[in-house]
Amino acid sequence: MVTSFTLDDLMVIEASRQIQDENIVLVGTGLPMVASLLAQKLHAPKMCYVVETGNIAPEVIPTPTSVCDPRVMYKAIKHGSLLDSLGGILQRGLADIAFLGGAQIDEYANVNSTSIGDYSNPKVRLPGSGGANDLASHAKKILIITRHEKRRFPKNCDYITSPGYIDGPEGRKNAGIPSKYPDIIVITNLCVMEIDKKTGKLVITKLMPSISIDDVITNTDFEPLIQSSINVSNPTQKEIDTLHNEVDPLGVYLKKNNPINN
């Protein structure tokens, strides 16, 4: 029996379970980094961690705050360029998994990280694509980790920075996007949603423990389809220990508060 964990912990742990050994994974920092390092320490020791700035296969030291942090450069096999990572690996088609984040995610898993409101006269201007559009266009599988709030899941994004399935099952193919039918998995603190290849829309595939379908629907602006309401597996003690003792020991990304006693 695991002593205690938060839904944020489990969100990151569930994301780490998506990564397989020897996968080439394009990662930045933040929760995706935490999930990737957890996978590397548990079940994917031969995972190749690639940072967009050009670092390949570093032994990341806890806890970097930037893709330029020397902590994501430690014992790398190569310090390269952005063109090496985003061009030579990603656009070349070699990335198995890429992580995305964003302010808005719509029902086709399109992501907005550019602006809220009108693009030319934005209410809030956000940082922009960065490498996100590249990751979403070229990776074979796309993972999105985000806390679940209604405003983050609108029916339509104000601006599509990174492509999900655009407007339907053939949306990516019709637009000429190289990775035509990737798996896209959105993991939140309430549920797991995946792209249904028949509709190109996100469907609920798993619920976090103690969370109901109604909780998810209340906190989602679009109407998510429901494929299954099985629970995300509880974390093992090893997953929790590795997460808090080795990957994020300083609690930079995951605080040990509001635990669910289990």
């Binding site: 399109n110 693009y119 266009s137 070229h138 599509i160 920075t161 637009a175 000429g176 190289p178």
Partner: peptide, 8 residues
């Protein structure tokens, strides 16, 4: 081959 299909 980036940016296709998006508001970029």
């Amino acid at each position: 081959k980036s940016m296709l299909g998006t508001d970029l």
